[in-house]
Each structure stands twice: as structure tokens, then as C-alpha cells.
Design a binder for these strands. Structure first.
Lengths: 144, 144
DNA sequence: TATAATCCCGAGTGAATGACTCGGATATGA
DNA sequence: TCATATCCGAGTCATTCACTCGGGATTATA
């Protein structure tokens, strides 16, 4: 029942983009340094984030990444779904699941997993990057 | 963000014990048959459940397993913690975690993970076996 | 117009985990 | 005594995780 580092890194990286939001895009390498994440691994993560249209990449020298939407319109759920797939404790309660398993109608545990999924979504889908950035005590993001 | 099959099997197995609760203990092999789970794998799961004092094993012929407490005093959280460890989306927000990570005080994402953890616990720790068994429409547990 | 900086992309890798299996030892009711 | 159980440690095989490697395409800037 653990989040992968991919998910954690993605949220942290998105928060860097949020807090350093300016005219100029910020380079992946810079994000990696600030958050102490392997740049090459972070690259893969940004591929997912870009495909999910959460960030836009600017190529060429002095390029980088920017949020694709305002920070109050991107939730933690958006980010996690982009890099980790559907938020569901078990496969049979995925929102977009094509077919239910054949014991769905008699499955007692299914209701539990649905309620668990919903309680997770409730937190993740209502917490935006702006919310999170707002809780910061204006510390630097650098290592402490 | 997926539960392992171990956790799912554990809950299903405990529900079998709940619903077939009688004088006699029920054999592991029977539970495995009813729920279509590998008996040898289920054995490992019952080791965890027994160590967590959620079930008691009765050895010898016509032995088996029983709930160690009434079904309304065992929660889904008890079961999952027994077989999967602490319920926490990331390590740094485990309830029994010995030391916080060194960036805990400046870590923005930590609060999100704590809220996520709490929302998960809220569901899992308030749902008992009795609750779940109560929702059943008196169908047989056999495959359908 | 070089050139360095940057994003973009597919593939590979080594360790860890997940989901089991195997082979037994121990206890006990019939 | 013997079949039926729980108990227990170890082994296996596939998958996933958390990266690394080696390039190609694009673009500001010197």
C-alpha cells in the first residue's frame, strides 16, 4: 500500500515548478538538483507529466518546463494518475475498468475497496498544488 | 498504490471464518477451496494473522482456524496491518516510524501524505468483519 | 552559423518484491 | 497408529522499481 518514488518525485517536482513559477521555464536539471533526484529518472517522470498535459516542455537552450495550467487547477490526484495510473487499491474498483470481475455481484470485499478508493480520491482530488504551496513557511526548498 | 493479493486474500479468508463461525474451527484447506486461493500461499497468510492474534489455530485432525475475537472487534485495518505492515502511503508518515526523515520539518508534501494516510485509516479502522458480513445478501461464497 | 544547452525517446539493468511452491516437522482426534 | 491438520523455513520464477545509457531533435545565444 505504498506510493512509488515516482509518484512522490512527481509531486515534489511539480511543487518546484509551482513555487518558481515565473516567465522563464525551469530546467529539469535544476529541479533534479533542488530535490536531490536523479535527473535521468526525473526525465522519465516528466514524459508522463507532459503526456498528461500537466506540464509543457520548452526545447532548446534556456528551455525547461512549466505548469500547463494554473497551480490551483492541478491536483495531487492529477499528478499521481499521470505517473502511477488509476487510483484504486485493487484492480476491480478502477473507475475506468472495462469489465468487472465475474464475482463482482457477490463480492463482499468489493464495497470496502470502493469506499477506500473514494476516501483516497477525496483527499487527492481536492488538494491542489496551490493549496500545498500555500502551506509553505517560505523556507527555501534546498536541503536542510 | 495497489494492495497486494496477500491483503485481499487475508480479508476474504477472515470473512469466511466470520460467516462460517461455529463451534468447530474451519480448516485452511476448506477456506482455500471456497475462495479459490492457493492453500500453500494462504498458509503463509495465516501465519501472519495468527502472529497478530487475529485468529487461533487448532492443530491436529479436525483442527483449523477460528477468529480470535468477535467479528465486530476485528477491523479491515487490523487484518491489512497484520499481513502488509503499516498503512501509510509513504514511509515517512508511518505511525510507528522511529525517526522522521531529516527534511520532515520543511517537507511540503508530508502533510498531504498524512492526510491521505488518515483518510485511508478512517475507512479501514472503522469497518469490522461484522459490518462486512452484514452486507451480504446471503449468497453462498462459492464461485458464481 | 557554430555550439552548447535543453528537451525528447527507446532500451537495458540490477535489486527488490510479489506470488507463489516444496519439503518437511509437530500435534491430535478417530 | 494413522490420517488430518497446523506450523515452519527455504526456494523459485516473473514482474516491478528505480534507476542508467546512449543517443536524436530543437533552439537561444555567442
Amino acid at each position: 500500500m505504498r506510493l512509488s518514488t515516482k509518484g512522490q518525485y512527481a509531486v515534489r517536482a511539480m511543487l518546484v515548478l509551482t513555487m518558481r513559477q515565473a516567465e522563464a521555464p525551469i530546467a529539469l536539471r535544476r529541479v533534479a538538483e533542488l530535490e536531490d533526484i536523479s535527473a535521468q529518472y526525473l526525465e522519465q517522470i516528466f514524459v508522463d507529466l507532459r503526456k498528461a498535459q500537466l506540464v509543457t516542455g520548452v526545447r532548446g537552450a534556456s528551455g525547461g518546463y512549466q505548469l500547463a495550467r494554473p497551480a490551483d487547477q492541478i491536483t495531487a490526484g492529477d499528478i499521481l494518475r499521470a505517473v502511477e495510473g488509476p487510483i484504486a487499491p485493487v484492480e476491480c474498483v478502477q473507475k475506468d475498468h472495462p469489465e468487472a470481475c465475474r464475482r463482482a455481484n457477490i463480492c463482499i470485499t468489493r464495497e470496502l475497496w470502493m469506499r477506500l478508493r473514494d476516501s483516497m480520491s477525496a483527499v487527492l482530488d481536492t488538494t491542489t498544488l496551490a493549496d500545498m504551496a500555500g502551506t509553505v513557511v517560505t523556507n527555501d526548498t534546498e536541503e536542510g
